[in-house]
Simulated scan of single mutants.
Amino acid sequence: MNTTSATRRDTRRAGLAGRAIRVVMTAAPLCVNSNTLLGDALAEMAAASLRHLVVVDCAGRCAGVLSDRCIVAAWAADPEALTCQRVSSLLESPAAVVDDATVADAAKLMRTAAVDAVAVVDSRCVPVGIVTGSDLVALLAR
């Protein structure tokens, strides 16, 4: 590999990391209330062909991101989970970045929190978007 192309690639990657997350996120994410049953959340995911939903509390603030994998794991542990367990029971601390964050900020949070999606929130913690690992891979592939 020649040094010039490696330098160009490094420069391009650095530029991508500094991009605003608003450029990469999916705006107006599909949200569910934290009191939603897992089966209902899974049905929403399937209907919209999504793997993640942003979860909100009763005030509309971000409570976290729910993945289809978490729902399936809950079902595997307890087949009654889909009809008895609420979304809130699967949430840990909310993985979210503010809407003026950079791509690097979101990627670092995804890595440290060991998640493959983060919510993007405004100053009131209201979800305005979602960024997934697939979004970041698509950005790199451009």
Rank of each mutant, 00 (worst) to 15 (best):
Ala59Ser: 15
Leu53Asn: 02
Leu109Gln: 10
Thr83Asp: 08
Asp40Gly: 00
Val97Tyr: 05
Met1Gln: 08
Gly60Cys: 10
Ala101Arg: 03
Val115Gln: 03
Leu50Ala: 06
Arg9Thr: 12
Leu90Glu: 05
Ile21Ala: 06
Ala27Tyr: 04
Val72Gln: 08
Arg61Lys: 15
Met110Lys: 09
Thr83Leu: 05
Leu139Lys: 10
Leu38Glu: 03
Arg51Ile: 02
Ala48Arg: 15
Asp105Met: 07
Pro127Phe: 06
Ala6Arg: 09
Glu44Ala: 15
Arg111Asp: 11
Ala63Asn: 04
Ser67Cys: 07
Thr11Lys: 10
Ala59His: 14
Ala46Lys: 14
Ser93Met: 06
Arg61Thr: 09
Met25Phe: 10
Ala96Leu: 11
Ala101Asn: 06
Val32Tyr: 02
Leu136Ser: 07
Arg51Gly: 12
Val72Pro: 00
Ala6His: 09
Thr36His: 06
Cys62Val: 04
Asn33Ser: 14
Asp99His: 15
Arg13Asp: 14
Arg8His: 12
Val118Cys: 09
Ala104Val: 03
Arg86Met: 08
Pro79Phe: 02
Ala96Ile: 05
Thr4Leu: 11
Arg61Gly: 03
Leu50His: 07
Arg61His: 13
Val24Asp: 07
Ser5Lys: 09
Ala117Asn: 04
Val118Lys: 01
Asn2Met: 06
Ala14Ser: 13
Leu136Asn: 07
Lys108Met: 12
Ala119Asn: 01
Val103Lys: 04
Arg124Pro: 01
Arg61Asn: 10
Pro29Val: 01
Glu44Arg: 13
Val65Asn: 02
Ala6Trp: 00
Ala104Gln: 11
Val24Arg: 09
His52Phe: 07
Ile130Asp: 00
Asp135Met: 08
Val54Ala: 02
Ala101Gln: 05
Thr4His: 13
Ser34Ala: 13
Glu92Ser: 15
Leu38Tyr: 04
Ala17Asp: 13
Leu91Gln: 04
Val24Gly: 12
Arg12Phe: 14
Asp122Val: 09
Ala47Glu: 11
Arg61Trp: 01
Met1His: 11
Ala6Gln: 14
Cys84Lys: 13
